[in-house]
Simulated assay, not measured.
Amino acid sequence: MANHVAGPEIEKLIKLLARLPGLGQRSARRVALHLIKNKDQLLIPLSDAMATAVDKIQVCETCGNVDSANPCTICTDARRDPSLLVVVEDVSDLWALERASVLNAAYHVLGGTLSPLDGIGPDDLNIGGLLARTDKGEIKEIILAVNATVEGQTTAHYITDQLQAQAKQASVINPDFQPIKISQLAHGVPIGGELDYLDEGTLLQAMRSRKEFS
Rank of each mutant, 00 (worst) to 15 (best):
L195E: 10
D67S: 15
Q164F: 07
L203E: 14
A206Q: 13
A18N: 04
C60E: 04
P122F: 08
P8M: 02
D199A: 12
E9T: 10
L23C: 04
I180P: 06
V66L: 15
E138V: 12
N65D: 13
N38I: 01
G112S: 03
P45Q: 13
E89P: 01
E200K: 14
R30D: 06
Q41S: 15
T76W: 02
T154G: 08
E141M: 04
T62Q: 14
L114P: 04
G188N: 11
C72T: 06
G112N: 05
D55V: 12
Y158C: 07
G111M: 05
R133S: 08
L85H: 03
G188Y: 14
A165H: 15
I173A: 15
D81C: 02
S171A: 15
T149I: 02
N38A: 12
H157D: 10
S92Y: 05
L103G: 01
G64T: 09
Q178F: 07
G24H: 04
D93I: 03
K37W: 12
Q184I: 05
D176F: 10
D67Y: 06
I36K: 08
P71T: 04
S47M: 07
L94P: 01
D135R: 11
N147M: 03
N70H: 12
A145P: 00
L103Y: 14
P8N: 13
E9H: 07
D67Q: 02
L144D: 04
L23K: 05
P190A: 13
I173V: 12
A167F: 02
L204W: 14
T76V: 10
E9I: 01
D135E: 12
T134K: 00
E9W: 00
Q184L: 11
D90S: 11
R208P: 02
N3F: 10
